[in-house]
């Protein structure tokens, strides 16, 4: 398989590094291998970051940001790393199609989700919603409720 071949090439290049004649292909293979390592590791990192955000964010609209990190940076870097591993072949073409699919469908789904959530009456939580200072919307709401109860 292709990855095994590349690993073997990388190992041989480091072993033969002292020798005089190393073909240029070996260097290119080595660079591609390191690049794919970096891409896959950072892709894994962004996937983790996105999923942690999915848990930690306070409401639906902010969670969408976290989820879109997985769809764009995480998936993009992982797929790019895999493309470098696969080399020019049918697999790379399929990976390109998968990436195009992500790029088209993810914004559509997120937009539909945000629209539906707004339509159903979900409100984004604003900064002033979290404070209880006088004059903020939450304080005004509580004031109004207080007065309504007092009248009753």
């Amino acid at each position: 398989m292709m990855p095994a071949v590349i690993i073997a090439a990388g190992a041989s290049s480091s072993a033969v590094a002292a020798g005089p004649a190393i073909p240029l292909d070996v260097y290119i293979d080595w660079i591609v291998h390191i690049l794919s390592w970096a891409a896959i590791l950072s892709g894994s990192f962004f996937v983790l970051v996105g999923s942690v955000g999915l848990i930690r964010m306070p409401d639906v609209f902010t969670r969408m940001h976290a989820a879109s990190i997985i769809d764009t940076l995480g998936a993009g870097l992982l797929v790019a790393g895999m493309m470098m591993q696969a080399g020019p072949s049918l697999i790379t073409l399929k990976l390109i199609f998968i990436m195009l699919l992500f790029l088209v469908t993810s914004p559509v789904a997120t937009h539909a989700l945000a629209q539906a959530a707004l339509h159903a009456g979900e409100k984004p939580e604003l900064k002033e919603d979290r404070t209880n200072e006088p004059g903020s919307p939450r304080a005004q709401l509580e004031e109004a409720q207080h007065q309504a109860e007092g009248k009753r």
Partner: peptide, 26 residues
């Protein structure tokens, strides 16, 4: 808490299943 959270999670799970499939293939 809301249905939309679940829809968002379902969408994310779909994306992650695709990535898992590709990674397991390799």
């Amino acid at each position: 808490p809301t249905v939309f959270d679940r829809v968002l999670a379902a969408n994310t799970i779909g994306t992650l299943a695709i990535l898992l499939l590709a990674v397991i293939g390799f």
